[in-house]
């Protein structure tokens, strides 16, 4: 067993390392965008929804519709139809950098929806509490909503990260590389099944680690 692993590492170590860095590169950008833009959009959805404190059917309808559209298109097709957009945005439709765009888009859509749901779970009376304590809208968001929803937001982010890891495995379609592409191209298509299984096991372990970390962090911040 150990010998097979050493043999695999001798043959594919360099490619494994490269693929791991590609996956990490794509994931970190997508997760950063999901956190920054997805969280903001989720808050806007929450505010502008029918039970929100600034209801706006038009704004909510547009945002919600856009998020639903992104989530409903099969991801592999989303990658392909976004090629012209990638060219417009970053000058190329292929490669690791181009892969970050559709991955970020789906990450933003996922986390925006999760954020909205986490905020909807917070007791509605929190807004009146914040108002009577003299909080501004920003303070309501920062000191009240985020505080009470933080465990849910952490768990949602964990789920988003795991989803993005899964999505990243198909980025090979536009030359994005990554572990999933290596498992498919070198592992399966070139009959190196050991490599394929090694990557699968590695991804399973990674997902477990992400989930456990997320659960621990959520528990740390949950004092309810």
């Amino acid at each position: 067993m150990i010998e097979r692993f050493i043999d695999l590492w001798d043959k594919f170590g360099g490619e494994l390392l490269k693929a791991s860095l590609e996956t990490l590169d794509m994931m970190s950008t997508a997760l950063f965008m999901a956190l920054l833009i997805g969280l903001t959009l989720g808050f806007v959805l929450f505010l502008s929804g029918s039970s929100g404190i600034r209801p706006s059917p038009l704004l909510y309808g547009i945002l919600s519709g856009l998020i639903n559209l992104i989530r409903s298109v099969p991801f592999i097709l989303l990658i392909i139809v976004m090629i012209p957009f990638n060219r417009l945005l970053i000058g190329t439709g292929f490669g690791v950098d181009a892969s970050k765009v559709p991955l970020s888009i789906i990450g933003i859509a996922l986390y925006a929806r999760f954020t909205e749901q986490s905020l909807l779970d917070v007791d509605k009376s929190i807004y009146e509490t914040s108002y009577t304590l003299g909080a501004s809208l920003w303070q309501y968001f920062r000191h009240f909503l985020l505080t009470e929803a933080r465990s849910g937001l952490i768990l949602s982010f964990t789920t988003t990260a795991i989803s993005l890891l899964s999505y990243s495995t198909v980025m090979g379609v536009i030359g994005g590389g990554g572990l999933g592409y290596l498992a498919m191209s070198q592992g399966y298509q070139n009959f190196h099944y050991d490599l394929m299984w090694l990557i699968i096991i590695g991804l399973v372990v990674l997902v477990q680690l992400i989930q456990v970390s997320g659960n621990l962090l959520a528990k740390r911040f949950d004092r309810r």
Binding site: I126, E128, T129, G134, Q139, E148, R150, R224
Partner: peptide, 27 residues
């Protein structure tokens, strides 16, 4: 002004002193 509610309306993710400190932090 201030308000006291039937359901207390404390933030459950903050402890006692953190809840009491909240109005001061907002200001």
């Amino acid at each position: 002004t201030s308000m006291i509610f039937q359901g207390f309306h404390l933030l459950s993710n903050l402890n006692v002193i953190e809840n009491v400190l909240l109005p001061g932090r907002l200001r």
